[in-house]
Write a protein that binds this DNA or RNA. Sequence first.
DNA 1: GCCATTCTGGACTGAATGGTACATAATTCG
DNA 2: CGAATTATGTACCATTCAGTCCAGAATGGC
Lengths: 194, 194
Amino acid sequence: MARPREFDPDAALDRAMQVFWAKGYEATSLDDLCAATGLSRSSLYAAFGDKHDLLLQSIDLYADRGAARFTAALAIPPIQAALRRVLDEFIDQIIAGPGRRGCFIGNCAAELARGDRDALARVRRSLARNEAIFRDALAAAKARGELPRSADPTALARFLTSGFQGLRLVGKANPDRAVLEDIAEIMLRCVGGD
Amino acid sequence: MARPREFDPDAALDRAMQVFWAKGYEATSLDDLCAATGLSRSSLYAAFGDKHDLLLQSIDLYADRGAARFTAALAIPPIQAALRRVLDEFIDQIIAGPGRRGCFIGNCAAELARGDRDALARVRRSLARNEAIFRDALAAAKARGELPRSADPTALARFLTSGFQGLRLVGKANPDRAVLEDIAEIMLRCVGGD
DNA sequence: GCCATTCTGGACTGAATGGTACATAATTCG
DNA sequence: CGAATTATGTACCATTCAGTCCAGAATGGC
């Protein structure tokens, strides 16, 4: 070994991810990434590969964090209250959070799903993982008697995965609390009722 | 007047819109637009203004078409059957349609909502218009007794607007009919029940 | 202290970008 | 027919882009 790194790769990846999240892949330039991370091109390339590699790692970072947050939030029963907490948290984030970023996974799905096979695979994996987290939590809740016997955890998990994406996309375009709470309210009723 | 246009502006705008829809704004180059429309740069600029102007006109075209389709499809009661028809149509389009384009409005919301005020305004207007179409159709259905007295057409319309965006976004990333039908099924149940 | 190795900054490159200029072609009106 | 006007195609421009290169700096091993 010789000269050691002068920066923290985890922190740098986090910064890079924030830029991709806020601006999108195409609209993010290498200069943006250098400025956000404080690194030079050389260091960026040596540590993370090219721009596309950096994107893939950013997606993974975001997906891992999101999955961990979902898992933790849904671990505390009852499921209805847990879901409401998660929905409220997202709504607060949309209203008060730093400007209109939406869901990074959703953004990538919208921007890249067509041509970028690698990014698409990560996006799908993240959505599938979230769906699985929902499904497990719903199945556990059903076993505890919190859901009707007719409830289908798989279908409900798919519905929630889609519903959250819709909520965050609509919220990105129109961050209006009343609108988002209407949506969340009906989503919750869907899960519990029937 | 002097030399007349050699092309049909409506057809050219339609072609341009398809490119923006498929590739996104940033990833679409002027050469792409010229190739798709068959026009030279001069003609494009003379007829539509610059790239950004062309985007705005593309959004309007897409939004108008979508609103007309929604209006027509929801005009035939009962509302449940009408919504199912629309959902099935979208699902068929996602599964069989030309490659993973998603909803152009949703794509624009994801890609541009942050920095592009003009595009954002069009996106919001389109979402609001669709919401109004849903609301009117739901209110009419409620008046016909097809929905419970407790049904809130405004909230349901917002839910559907968001739900459709979620469905199409998830479908873009993962065009799996079983998944999409699970989602659609629960959306429908939400509107009818409770 | 010195060499090998790794990291860092900035200059550089070739390609692609959005947009413009201009010469030419086609049409209408007098 | 001829002048005025509009449309078209192409060459062109400055800028920006992702990615490379290299000289120099900083460290560890000996």
